Amino acid sequence: MAIPSLPLQKNVLKAVLWMMGALVSFTTMALAARELTHEMSVFQALSFRSIICVAVLTAIAAFNRFEGVRTDKIGLHLSRNVIHFAGQFGWVYGLSLLPLAAVFSIEFTVPIWTAIMAALFLGEPFTRWRMISVAMGFVGILIVVRPGAAMIDVAAFAVLAAAMAYAATFVFTRHMASTERPFTIVFWMNLIQLPLGLIPAMTMWVTPSPENYFWIAAIGLGGLCSHWCVAHAMRHADAAVVAPMDFIRLPIIAVIGFMFYDEPWNPYVLAGGVLIFAGNMVNLWGERRRR
């Protein structure tokens, strides 16, 4: 999701508070996906997310007389969101099978893949700091999945592919940000992804049990609130301040996995996640020096 191009209003405390909201939202959405896929398909879980998001965003658009949804870049929106939906599918599929901490560790490679794709498709410089960041990220991935270990399976590769898909959508967003409003991008994202999930979901539809109504609301509202909170955090502090706070998701989800899902502590996952995170921070620090 694009970050609104609003003036930076330095206030680290507000940035921290908004990021706490983002952490709660991301974690809630992950838990909702895990719980819902115990009962229904990944397609159906994603359909509920899109239905709720489209309903909320349509109400906002109607209040503003639909001024923020008009676009002449429908082809770009379609391409971006087919890729993003594939990423969402891989992420939720991984959450249904892998330890939660492993999914989050692999997900932290998104900035690394974004740096590679931005250099290939947008002509952004591939500096030595980005090369170091990419190298650290690859080593971190190897530590997390450990070739020859049980972690190597379809679900792990699905999450890794999801991280690549998310990176591709960020590249699309950078390309579109000069002409498309953030609300336009988010509105079309959910509207296009609704039939992508709903059509296959209808072939294997399961009537949700009443105890899952909470998780249905959580996966939809969590998806909206997470990006909203990150956008506001970026208004009050730069990426070098906000990005490290996102890493708190890993120990939080590891504790939740241990307490509620009997997932054992895996030092390899945590060590790989730390190395991937360190690679992201090297890239941020290098970019600040270069500028």
Rank of each mutant, 00 (worst) to 15 (best):
M1N: 02
P4A: 10
P7F: 05
L8A: 12
L13V: 11
K14R: 13
V16G: 04
M19Y: 10
A22H: 03
M29G: 13
H38Y: 10
E39W: 13
E39M: 14
E39A: 15
R49D: 13
I51L: 15
V56P: 05
A59Q: 02
I60Y: 12
A61C: 10
F63T: 10
F66W: 15
V69F: 04
K73W: 08
G75H: 09
S79M: 05
N81V: 07
F85Q: 06
Q88K: 11
W91V: 06
G94Q: 06
S96G: 10
L98G: 07
P99V: 03
A101K: 00
V103G: 01
S105C: 11
E107H: 10
I112V: 13
A115P: 03
L122W: 08
P125T: 12
T127G: 12
R128L: 15
F138W: 10
V139F: 11
R146L: 13
G148I: 12
V154T: 11
A158P: 08
V171S: 03
F172Y: 14
T173P: 08
T179H: 13
T184M: 07
T184N: 15
W188Q: 07
N190T: 14
V206M: 13
E211F: 13
G220P: 07
G222I: 01
G222F: 00
C225K: 02
C229S: 15
A231I: 05
H232N: 08
A233V: 08
A239V: 15
P244I: 10
I248N: 04
I252L: 14
A254C: 04
A254D: 00
I256R: 00
G257Y: 00
M259T: 00
F260R: 00
Y261G: 00
E263P: 00
P267M: 07
V269Y: 00
V269C: 08
G272L: 05
G273H: 02
N283K: 11
E287M: 11
R288T: 14
R290Q: 14
R291S: 14
